[in-house]
Amino acid sequence: MMRRQLILTPEPISQSVMAGPCAENKSCGALLSFVGIVRSLEGDQVIEGIDYEAYQAMAKHQFQLLFNEMEQRWPIESVRLIHRLGRVDVGQASLWVELLAPHRQEAFEALGWLIDTMKQKVPIWKHPIPRPETATTAPRAAIEQDGETQCDDPSTIS
C-alpha cells in the first residue's frame, strides 16, 4: 500500500518539510523530489507572484485518483505532495513532490506523469500578479477560497 500525504495550503512550503524524513523503507533505492518555483516571467509578462486558486474538494479528490493510478502503474512506496494556494511570490515554491520507489527509473517516470497529469486534471488555476510598473491591467482581485457569491438574480432556470 503506497503511503500518501497531500497538502493544499496557503502557507509557505518550509525547508523543514522538504528536508524532513521520508518513510523508512529499506527496499527502496530511489528518493526523488521536485520543487516547482514561481518564475519572474509568466509568458512575456513580468510578475511579482502568482495567486493560486483551487476548487479544493475536487482538487483533493482528483489528486487521490492520480495517486491511485500511479500506484497501479509503478511500484511507488510513498508519495508526498504539497501545493500552495493563494499568493506565492516569485522565487517561492508553489509545488513540492517527493516519491520513494525501489528504483530510479520508475520514480522518474511516475513523477513526470504525475505532474503532467496534474496539469490536465487537478482544478487549480494561476492568476499572475503583474509588477506594478509593468502592469497593463489591474491585478486581479484576491479570491476568497471559501467565499461564495450568489448571482445577483438568484432566480433559478426552470
Binding site: T149, C151, P154, I157, S158
Partner: peptide, 24 residues
C-alpha cells in the same frame, strides 16, 4: 429536479457570480 452550478477562475467573472441553482 434541482442542481447547483459552480463557476471557478475567470468563469466566475464572466458569470458575475460563483454559483446558481438550476431546475431541470
Amino acid at each position: 429536479m434541482r442542481v447547483q452550478v459552480h463557476f471557478f477562475s475567470y468563469f466566475r467573472d464572466l458569470a458575475a457570480c460563483s454559483q446558481c441553482s438550476l431546475n431541470l
